[in-house]
């Protein structure tokens, strides 16, 4: 069946589809991914902080029961396969967006799937912060909130950026999957044309575009992480002219 992929008719047909559909699909995929990541960070970052500071021996210990519940919820959400999670959150999506189909509606399951993941990433970043620095802040009279905002988070910015890059590429993959249940973007094109109508060339192109997006996100993230890390030696001190 693959012999029919590279015929000139197939190319002509694919080109029409690409011209008419790809710019919008690319844009949809991009903003869904970025928005879902942003919301996942908005929820996941404070949660990740709570996981570190709220534990026994942390800088702001929380009731044991609360910590157990949070950990339990995160673990449950992390273990449900995304395809099933998308269907499970239909009621919630309907409440928030008003519908369960379409590009915007797919943001809800993406956020629900991604925030627990982000919370765990943040947790692991913050655990890497040198405990001596926290002791220093405490001995300087910092409140727990100040320690979080002025020590723990700023000191882990480079590793947070690396980890958020992992998150955004993962969410990009999920967003493509949401094409199955009515989400828009490159995933929808790949499934509609490739899976339902056997237009493999279109599907390949959609996949190639996804790969390129991942590459872009990843290299921008890596560069940013390196650039922000002041622990690396030999950085030139900016001179005022």
């Amino acid at each position: 069946m693959f012999s029919s992929i590279f015929t000139s008719e197939a190319f002509a047909e694919a080109w029409t589809i690409i011209k008419t559909q790809f710019p919008l699909a690319l844009w949809e995929t991009f903003y869904v991914t970025v928005l879902a990541t942003a919301f996942a960070i908005i929820i996941g970052l404070p949660l990740g902080v709570l996981l570190v500071v709220g534990e026994k021996g942390g800088i702001k210990p929380m009731p044991k029961a609360l910590m157990a519940v949070i950990n339990f919820i995160i673990n449950i959400l992390r273990s449900v396969p995304f395809l099933i999670l998308m269907i499970l959150v239909f009621p919630l999506t309907r409440v928030i967006i008003g519908t369960t189909v379409g590009t915007v509606a797919s943001i809800v399951p993406l956020v629900i799937a991604a925030f627990p993941f982000v919370a765990r990433l943040v947790e692991s970043c913050l655990r890497e912060v040198n405990p001596n620095l926290i002791e220093m802040a405490q001995s300087t009279g910092a409140t727990p909130f100040q320690i979080i905002c002025k020590v723990m988070i700023p000191e882990s910015v480079p590793s947070l950026i690396s980890n958020f890059t992992v998150a955004i590429t993962t969410i990009l993959g999920y967003s493509a999957m949401s094409g199955i249940i009515g989400g828009g973007g490159l995933g929808k094109i790949a499934i509609n044309y490739g899976y339902y109508r056997y237009k493999y060339l279109v599907m390949f192109l959609a996949v190639i575009l996804l790969i390129i997006l991942v590459q872009i996100f990843q290299s921008v993230g890596t560069k940013l992480a390196i650039k922000t890390d002041k622990r690396l030696k030999n950085q030139t001190v900016k001179k005022r002219s």
């Binding site: 040198n130 001596n132 220093m136 405490q138 001995s139 300087t140 700023p154 480079p158 002041k230």
Partner: peptide
């Protein structure tokens, strides 16, 4: 603690 400050073996400067 503003009156009782401390310095450490590992300096403990904020690296960022």
């Amino acid at each position: 603690r503003r009156d009782i400050t401390m310095i450490f073996q590992a300096f403990n400067l904020l690296m960022q």
